[in-house]
Amino acid sequence: MKYQLYPLGDQAIVIDLGDSINKDIHQRVRTVMLQLDEQSFDWMIEYVSSFTSVTIYYDPIKVIKAQSCSSPTLPYDFVAQTINRLLQTSEPKRITDPQVVEIPVLYGGKAGPDLKEVAQYNRLAPKEVIDIHTSKAYFVYMIGFAPGFPYLGGMSKRIAMPRKPTPRLSIPAGSVGIAGEQTGIYPIATPGGWQIIGQTPVKLFTPSYSPPSLLQAGDSIRFTSITAEEFEALGDKHD
């Protein structure tokens, strides 16, 4: 596996696995995550994966302790050596298939005020937009921006549409939107310029759950279309 290591400040290291957003690099990111999950380095605080890299945050004091010698090497150098050894000499014991999470969505109407516009913009019927949006699985490339917010890849260009020129002041939690060639779900109510085509009753982030985020980098999701009644029923269940 090809990769490069870079420092991110004096307490983090970046494992850089490529420079474009695609499935292959995403797969490498997943592999590194699985390898790290199998380790229990005392000095590793946590890691964050993104489209093309995995960043490890470390505690330099614990790195020094882990070396247990009188002339320890620089924390960064020790961490880099350890990562090199891990990535060059081992494979993850088990490459699990990504978890597929189903996201039920009530499309159009009040839940998706921009569905008609997205359809018109792409010369499609609203129903066709829904069919395309629900037709394939999406990769969760990374979680960021807000708690539980997934950066998804794999949306069809046939339903792409630029953001709104003026963002809405508040978009309700669970809103499913389109921005350019990306689709996403807002975990919390926030201002935003996405074209909102629907809403899910599923909560993406619940601090009392472990893990608190429904989705994790490396998962894949599939949207399904539900009725207003199903939305109500599911909403009750999740509250």
């Binding site: 400040g9 983090a12 993104s50 890299s53 960043t55």
Partner: peptide
């Protein structure tokens, strides 16, 4: 640039 992790002091 493709989004990636940041840290305090970035």
């Amino acid at each position: 640039m493709i989004s990636e992790a940041v840290s305090i002091g970035t």
